[in-house]
Design a protein around this nucleic acid. Structure first.
Lengths: 238, 238
DNA sequence: CACCTTATTTATCATATGATAAATTACTAG
DNA sequence: CTAGTAATTTATCATATGATAAATAAGGTG
């Protein structure tokens, strides 16, 4: 009856040209496709990630439905409320981004710390250095301090503490399990510098920026040089 | 009818309890106070900064009016649209945060680069390391790439290029005006690491974090050690 | 084919929100 | 004190948005 306002006015300016494709036919009307519960749920979450990463979590459920090629009320068959959908998005974005092989790779003492963490950060960058992840995690951090807090904790335990420990061993400072808050400050600076680089490069899309590998190398060098200087006289030959 | 979820669950966690105060009387009804055009405008912008920094730029004009102790339509007497108010907020937040004395201080070659930039960053931190600025600039960056771009340009020209130049002079590498993009990567890493620290410390309010001065010192050391290593052999006595 | 389950859509509601017009009242000049 | 200017409020609109109920139809099963 009434012309489905979403089709005549797209407030987010987003190109939401995700109309259900005419499979092979030409002028197929927006035919209904029935999907399994899980498949549909996945499509909705994916659309929500795309929408939220652009418009923030205030992005409307109608725009999400439009992206997913469904009507807005259908969304509520799978998520009781928008807040539930947001939480599904949190999970999708934050979980399952960690490659379990990394745990072992970081503590493989047959290789220099620099090489290990260079390789790791290059792979990690491939996982999270894209506009969608960077933007949505920024929005999440601003909206929900708790989840950002949790993610920082993960980074600290999985990446930064291993880095400090492995570096200590490499410098012959002994193998301690405990890592103090003070000792974490330097690796946090390094990690933060890379995240900031990623935002400049992949969110702002500043042109002519250095290659990610080079920047990772530089950031790691900064940390390694600092710990070297801390360990004793700078460059003292042992 | 239904209980207005925002009153029982305030997603932004904002306490918008800013009822217009009874001036000196006790039970004074919300008395009208007439202000000059400029004074009222300032109050509105200030309220908008507070509101936007908490709820993002989707914060409602009604909440802003509430914070400012006025009614919502009055806001439109001073700003033709919400977008105009947002631009006034951009100006308030981004401009006038630079102390002109800093320009000279950064190139005062009677002092070591470390000391100069340590002092500068400590003062700069006092200006922008607070939740309001950090949050609103994050929101602004996500919403308006152009303004974030512009701000990055300012940082680069006013802080990072001077740092590179002054460091070169200190290392006896000559006084060049041109600073290549590659040469800016390291100072950007340093600067970014400090911004990331600020967010962890002042937005997430993680407890037990190191003092800002110490962190600035560490970040500067990272950069200085890296340039030292780049300049020739690490720690080669000249 | 006929039937039934349920995915999907249509229609609709209640509230939130940006914005405007008209009524009101605080302050000031004469 | 009076009148007038303009700051401020009250009333109101149009649309956006989260959410729900009922109608429709796709696809599997007998």
């Amino acid at each position: 009856m009434f012309p489905n306002r979403d089709t005549i006015f797209n407030p987010s300016g987003v190109d939401v040209a995700n109309t259900p494709q005419p499979d092979t036919h030409e002028e197929t009307a927006p035919r209904r496709r029935r999907l399994s519960r899980d498949a549909r749920k996945d499509e909705i979450v994916q659309a929500a990630v795309a929408q939220f990463s652009e418009a923030g979590f205030d992005g409307s459920t109608r725009d999400i439905a439009l992206r997913a090629g469904i009507t807005q009320p259908l969304l509520y068959r799978y998520f009781p409320s928008k807040e539930d959908l947001i939480e599904a998005v949190y999970e999708k974005v934050y979980l399952d981004r960690w490659n379990p092989a990394w745990d072992a790779a970081l503590i493989d003492r047959s290789r220099p710390v620099k090489d290990r963490f260079q390789d790791f950060y290059e792979e990690y960058a491939q996982t999270i250095f894209d506009p969608e992840w960077l933007r949505i995690s920024s929005f999440a951090a601003l909206r929900n301090a708790q989840i950002h807090d949790w993610y920082n904790h993960v980074v600290q335990e999985m990446i930064l503490k291993p880095l400090v420990r492995e570096r200590r061993v490499e410098l012959g400072m002994g193998d301690t399990v405990l890592v103090s808050k003070d000792a974490l400050e330097a690796p946090w600076l390094m990690h933060g510098s890379l995240l900031h680089y990623a935002k400049r490069r992949f969110v702002l899309e500043i042109d002519g920026m250095s290659d990610t590998s080079d920047v990772i190398s530089q950031a790691l060098d900064m940390y390694l040089l600092l710990t070297q200087a801390d360990a004793g006289q700078p460059c003292a030959d042992s």
